[in-house]
Amino acid sequence: MSQVVYAKGLTKSYGGFDAVKDVSFALEENRIYGLLGRNGAGKTTIMNMITAQTFPTRGELKVFGEEPFENGRVLSRVCIVKESQKYPDYFSVRDVLETAAMLFPNWDRAFAASLVEEFRLPVKRKMKKLSRGMLSSVGIVVGLASRAPLTIFDEPYLGLDAVARKIFYDRLMEDYTEHPRTVVLSTHLIDEASPLLEHLLVIDGGRILLDEDADELRGRAYSVAGTASKVEAFASGREDQVIARETFGSLASATLLGVMDEGTRRQAGSLNLELASVSVQQLIVHLTQENTQRKAANDR
């Protein structure tokens, strides 16, 4: 499988502050990646560097095997949809879509038209008169209809309602199946998007915290629930694996890192505890919090 993006020791500094620190990763062809992390973690900076909208301070970055800066072969194959994308005030929705049609070689007019219909976009309205949700929809239409071999969605659905988000996920999956490409989706709505994501990159404080296959990650933790005393009995001897505990009166639950193997199942069963898988979102929240705490401890 060929590499679409290759980054090694990638760093971006603003003054004395490192927004992205010594980051290395690779994105392979025709997969859907989730780029996850808290606000200010460095996600947008990484995506802006991939599309040569900003420049790395240090490190190596190859997109389709080449340097992206001022490289027509690379840039014509990349489409980035940013929450912060600016549009000319005097452009209507149609102006934006017609311009995108001229600039992206794989643009599909019919697909764009059907998306406009589904998102109920007023094509004649000026961009600056659109609501936040409509503005996001325009970006999504551009991102999907461009069919760029590398399509990057950076927080694409600010202000979008649940129905519109569902349309986005559904159309993305359908079109991805018919026209495979590499997709990077950066989002806060991890659980909502996680069924789509094949591989996860979690970034925190400008560093890569996790670079793992989504299915493997899903199997990395589990939770048990039942009466408090039994949960305690189960947890004792596994103290180093417990990452979260909650009690509600006489009941309790605990989240543990580790694989739900046969022995675990048997023990949980004998204690009358309910076993459940942990959502990707919970796991990531835990990982980023742990990272913050560790950092605080180091600083002390």
């Binding site: 490289n71 840039l75 990349v78 489409c79 005030d89 311009t99 992206f104």
Partner: peptide, 14 residues
């Protein structure tokens, strides 16, 4: 008005 838009559409500065 148009430079940030054009760059967002993957256009080279040149």
């Amino acid at each position: 008005q148009t430079f940030p838009f054009a760059l967002g559409m993957g256009v080279r500065r040149t």
